[in-house]
């Protein structure tokens, strides 16, 4: 059933009516094959037996450069510091910034501390009892650095410095709000 045109060179092999022609392997195909094989050999020799940088070395080079950049930045700006009482006060007066605290709280904190600070997985934030201190700077430190063995993440790594301050101010403002379903007190009583 398959009759090749006269000019095509056939191998003469026919299987169930399928004929095989004897075209040469396309030159570009051969070139592509040899190029990838050469690349493969060269790459393997360079990276596995030669001078090539290993994945581990590359990672540590990048991490090192990143740390240097961080140090430089801290040296230039002085880095984030625990804000002073005045700074917190300034935040309290700025309505926009108060809103930032509420919004950030709703986005990041409610899954553990409840939508109104009543507590849940994490402690109640509205009562007078504190596990890690109830002053502005102590709350700031707890939010920024987290509490590793309790599952509180170090938020300074995930939100901006300004947002940590805003959160601190917001959390402080929750005191005495008596939301429903509040979690039982944990920690030390702190009287302000």
């Amino acid at each position: 059933m398959n009759k090749p045109p006269q000019e095509e060179k056939s191998t003469g092999h026919i299987y169930d009516g399928i004929e095989e022609l004897d075209h040469p392997v396309p030159k570009w195909f051969q070139a592509m094959f040899f190029a990838t094989v050469l690349f493969g050999i060269a790459y393997f020799l360079y990276y596995s037996l030669g001078e090539g940088e290993s994945i581990d070395q590359e990672y540590h080079r990048i991490i090192h450069a990143e740390r240097l950049a961080q140090f430089e930045r801290v040296a230039k700006t002085g880095g984030p510091k625990v804000p002073s009482g005045e700074e917190f006060q300034a935040f309290l007066k700025d309505a926009e910034k108060t809103k930032l605290g509420a919004v950030t709280y709703q986005a990041k904190c409610i899954s553990c501390h409840g939508s109104q600070g009543q507590g849940g997985i994490g402690p109640n934030l509205t009562d007078e009892y504190w596990l890690h201190g109830g002053s502005m700077s102590q709350i700031y430190g707890t939010i920024a650095n987290g509490v590793a063995d309790k599952g509180m993440p170090p938020w300074a790594l995930m939100v901006t410095h300004e947002e940590v301050i805003a959160l601190t101010v917001y959390v402080k403002s929750l005191a005495g709000t008596h939301p429903p379903n509040a979690k039982a007190p944990q920690g030390e009583k702190v009287s302000n």
Binding site: E8, T11, I18, E19, E20, H23
Partner: peptide, 8 residues
């Protein structure tokens, strides 16, 4: 149609 290239 016949197969293009046996060598390939």
């Amino acid at each position: 149609k016949p197969v293009y290239s046996y060598r390939l």
